[in-house]
Each structure stands twice: as structure tokens, then as C-alpha cells.
Amino acid sequence: MKHTRIALASAAALMMTLSACGGDSGGGSGGAYPSEDMDWTIAFGPGGGNDIMARTMVDILQRNDLYPENIRVENRDGGSGATGWGYLLNQAGEGYGISTTSGSFITTPLQADTGWEPTDFTPVGLLAADNALMIAAGDAEFQTYDEWVDYATGKGSVVVGGIGTVNVDYIIQQMVADAEGYEIEYVPYNDEGQMQTSLLSGAIDTMISNPGSIMGQIEAGQVTPLLFTGPERLEALPDVPTGEENGVSDLPSMPRGLILPPDAPQEAQDWWVETMQEVVETEEWQAYLDENFLLEDERWGEDFTTYLDETQTAFEEQLTELGAL
């Protein structure tokens, strides 16, 4: 059953590719923009946040017949996104490569010589912002943000965790600590799972996590959210205050957007901006945003590039100040 389905799918794919190849030799530049297969790069492995967003988009595009040709989705994982976006970089000048961005799109070039900057790529748009929660263990002695601040300032120095060093998690922990006037010992983790058990075991006092990946534990009362970094409170967590309310302004968020290779043809950029504006109106996209607790934040074309540039400069300044760069 499964085998026949796969066989059918591959047979169909084969036919499509063959016909596409036939079309290619005729002359790719002649026709209207989408006349070839799209090569969609996911710069991370399957199952991650970036992967889920990309596959949701492709699903919407295909279900609504928005892209007339085939879309080949491929996970090009490695080097914290450097491999995948490096692959897109090599398609410079073409309009048939595309990729979704995430926080690493800004931070990876800061810590490694990737050969590209976020602003090198042709922007389609920022679609959503991914904000974070500051989390405490469910059995900790502080269960609200105010209790946490009292605890931390009372102790003077606390141990907190987050993913990575050159990352927003570190910036958030440090900004909150600076604003409230306590010292932190920051423990960097590689792996969300280890960080979570670490928190539950009492080794660290708080950690930073995305609402999407921690909501299950919050509902179970295993962990308690203390602070949300977004501009407004989350609908799902109406009791959790924002940084803004507590006088910690401009907490960074992760850009979830879409990019084309550098110097992509104008018609390709226009087509994608227009199409994505349709995509973000669909119910499926809204459902995706709700399920993953993402905030709608749309900036199209050059606005997106400006946003990337500003965010990166801000990150760089903050991390340099912290001594992480």
C-alpha cells in the first residue's frame, strides 16, 4: 500500500522532472516567472522550528495551487545554518532557490566566517516574530516574575541557562538581569532536552525557551513561565507579564522570514512578495501561528533587509558588550 503510493509519487515526480527538463532546454528566461521547479532549502534538520515553518508554507502553496510547478524541499543541515544558506548563496542571480530564516540567520555570521551576511540575500519578507519565555521549575520557590526578581536580587547572583552563547537567550537573560539589578552566571546548553532536565533537577534557576516547545510542560504545571519577551501578553498565557511592562524594553526576537538567492531577478522577488502576502492571509497560516505561538510581524522586501540589518547590529553590540564576541 505504502510502497505503491511511494512508487506512484516517484513516478509522478519523474514525469514532472522529465517534462521540466524538456522545458529547460527551450529557454528558461523567456517565459513568465514561475516556469521551473523551486529548490526549497531548509537549513536545519527535519522536525525543528525552521523545518515546520517551511513545510507548512510549502503545504499551503501546494494546497492552494499558488506555485504552478513542483517544489522540491530539501533539508541541508550543518554549521548552524551556514551550509544551507551557503547553498542558497551559490545560486546567486537565480530565482528558483528559496529558504526560510530563523535566529541563526543573524547569529551564525556573527560567530563564524560564513562568507555571507543576512543582508546579502534578496528579501521576500519577514512573516512572524518568534518570542521567548523565561521559565522556572514548577516547584521553585518563586512562581511569578516579581517573586523571581525578589529572589534574585536577594541572592545577588543566580545561575540561569539558555541555548548557546552567541544567541538571543544570553542577551535576554543579561538584559533582564541588568534592568533588575542582579548578577547572572550563564550556563550555555547545546540541547533543549538537557536544559529542561537541568532546570527540573534544580541545577539552574531559570531558562529561556520558546512557547511552542514548552507549552506542554507549562500546562502540566511542571514548569512556570515568569516573563514573555514579546510586545504584548500571549493569549494562551494571559497572566504572564511582558518585559515591556516591567521596564525591560526592546527584548530581541527571532525573525521568521523568507529569502531568495542574492541578486535574484526582480520579477522573482515581486512574484514571491505578492504570493506570500496571499499565504499569510490563509486560515492554515493563522492556525500555524496560533499553534506555535508566533506573533504576526510582516515586513516586505527592503523593509525586511533593513530589519535584519538593525537586528544584527543590535545583537552584535549587545554580545560584544557581554564579551561573547
Partner: peptide, 18 residues
């Protein structure tokens, strides 16, 4: 970790309440 990604794709919330 890959399985958790799959759970989320199917709209399941991984966590103690699963």
C-alpha cells in the same frame, strides 16, 4: 528529538499531559 518534531507536525503537544 526527530519524533518530537513529528508530534508537532501532527499538531500534538509534547509534554507531561500527552
Amino acid at each position: 528529538a526527530v519524533l518530537i518534531g513529528g508530534f508537532m507536525m501532527w499538531g500534538l503537544q509534547p509534554g507531561p499531559l500527552l
